[in-house]
């Protein structure tokens, strides 16, 4: 039991097929409580399928998955009490205002003071000024912030972020990274999927690479680096990346 309590997520031999197509062929990994775990993989590798199974939206064909001590197949209610999901596309209600979205979520989580919860979240995510505008008028970055704020209503212990920065501009991406780091510092377990290597490198305590239905490598960044041949010394002229140039010109955010 003492071993189990340090793990937020335990996945063993997870399998899932869509018709003939086998997406997950036996996936194993564990996520430590309070850590940031990144599941890395190219498009179509099955990252979202893993997230959906862990978030009780999809049933696996085989294997087990335990989230916060609850088996996803037999105790989905317990899992849902422990988690929140931020999907690939910002799932905000565009007809409602930012505030109304948050109040609605607080009511659905059956919290005692929905309006107060909404006000706090709006402040925390810099949306107070836009609070009473419909979410359809928000920029992509604001929408993602509202989306993440909605996920955090009720302080879930485990947060799933499925490609949280796909489609965001660099500034918004760095903002999301900041939020993720703050959350982890506060003790929340973060399960992140991404196709950006840099994102995993920036954020994750542990990284697992999902490829053709299996985890082909996992560990900390330095462990993963050891898997590769000894570093060679080469002289390369270092050109700034476009992202560095962009951020230098825009100049509003210091690099994290």
């Amino acid at each position: 039991m003492s071993i189990a309590t340090t793990k937020s997520i335990q996945v063993k031999g997870l399998r899932k097929s869509y018709k003939q197509h086998q997406v997950l062929k036996g996936v194993d990994f564990e996520v430590e409580k309070g850590s940031i775990f990144a599941l890395l993989g190219s498009n179509g590798a099955g990252k979202t399928t893993v997230v959906k199974i862990l978030a009780t939206l999809l049933k696996q064909d085989g294997g087990t998955a335990v989230v916060n001590g609850f088996d996803v197949a037999s105790k989905p209610d317990g899992v849902r009490q422990s988690i929140s999901l931020t999907g690939q596309f910002a799932a905000v209600d565009e007809v409602l205002t930012g505030r109304e979205n948050l109040v609605m979520l607080a009511k659905l989580r059956h919290l005692p003071h929905p309006r107060q919860v909404a006000d706090d979240m709006l402040k925390r995510f810099g949306l107070t000024e836009a609070a009473d505008r419909r979410a359809s008028t928000y920029s992509g970055g604001m929408r993602r912030r509202l989306d993440i704020a909605l996920s955090l209503v009720g302080k879930p212990q485990i947060v799933f972020l499925d490609e949280p920065t796909t489609g965001l501009d660099p500034e918004s991406r760095i903002e999301v990274w900041k939020i993720v780091k703050e959350l982890a510092d506060g003790g929340t377990t973060i399960f992140l999927t991404t196709q950006y290597l840099e994102e995993a490198e920036q954020l994750a305590d542990r990284i697992a690479i999902l490829h053709e239905g299996r985890i082909i490598a996992s560990g900390t960044l330095s462990e993963l680096k050891k898997l590769f041949p000894q570093a060679k010394v080469e002289y390369v002229e270092k050109q700034p990346s476009l992202e560095e140039i962009f951020l230098a010109i825009v100049g509003k955010k210091e690099a994290i």
Partner: peptide
Amino acid sequence: GIIERFHSM
């Protein structure tokens, strides 16, 4: 994805 959000709650 709003139904998915609700269903994961």
